[in-house]
Amino acid sequence: MTIVTGKTGARQELRPARWSLLLQKIWEHRADYAYVLPAIVVMLIVIAYPIYYTVELSFFNTPPGLQLRDKIFIGFDNYTAILTSQVFWKVTWNTLVWTLASTFISFALGFAAALALHRDFVGRGVLRAILIIPWVISAVAASYIWKWIYHSDFGIIGAVLVGLGLTDRPPNFIDSVSTVLPSLIVVNIWREFPFAMIMMMAGLQTVPDQLLRAAKVDGANAWQRFWHVTFPHLRDVSTVTILLLAVANFNSFIIPWIMTGGGPSNASHIWITHIYELAFGRQRWGVASAYSVLLFLFMMTLGYFYVRALSGNERKEANS
């Protein structure tokens, strides 16, 4: 005879009840599920399967003389090879420098521009439109234009500096291992800061005017009004903007690939360009997949914080 304690018995009784409740809710919302089903199927095909296949490939060796279907299982060797290679650490360092510098400088410049444009002055609309131009220009076109601007022999910057007598030779921007990454970061910031500016301008619209006026009446100076009133209101939009910029920068490809192809001497290779070269230039699909899995894990972590930041906003809005 089985002795059932009251607590366990109650739990067992609850389980079928909870299941039936869940099924009942699903049934009630069957039309909603039907609406999202095509999207879920498409996502499974275009996202879930490639993720699964990438993870699978990351456990195989794919020599250039063999077809992909003849791949050789090697367990975690690709991961070991990546983590013990010098190139991995160099590329990771480049990626961190690229992502952090591009993200925070773009954000700071965008924020500053948003604050400036939030004030009413003649020509504000025109200036706002001009500042958005770098963001709307195709990244491919911008990369080629900047490549010519930076050209180490007959670039515009070099010609101007030589013309003004400031230097004997044009500066070496993208053909030097020490200057190439900062030079590319400048281009990326130029492209991205308008995005931060737009986001922060939108955020500034949400700062209650009466609070600013009240602070002014209470004798707060401009800095105090910004720090104690404006900035706290922008904290959430800032978090989201920084996260979006960080994700975009971590996944950057066009600017470094077109301008330098990751060179010279891997000095401007970031994760995505390196993965591309491994996969499509060197056909190391296995190693490239292992890199992609590591990148995926990192991006998922960033995504977790992004979702948390968004849901934090929603909770606050609901509470207020």
Partner: peptide
């Protein structure tokens, strides 16, 4: 490239 600097600097790109 390095010693004489007699070729285009942009040779690497």
């Amino acid at each position: 490239y390095v010693r004489d600097k007699s070729v285009p600097v942009s040779a690497l790109t």
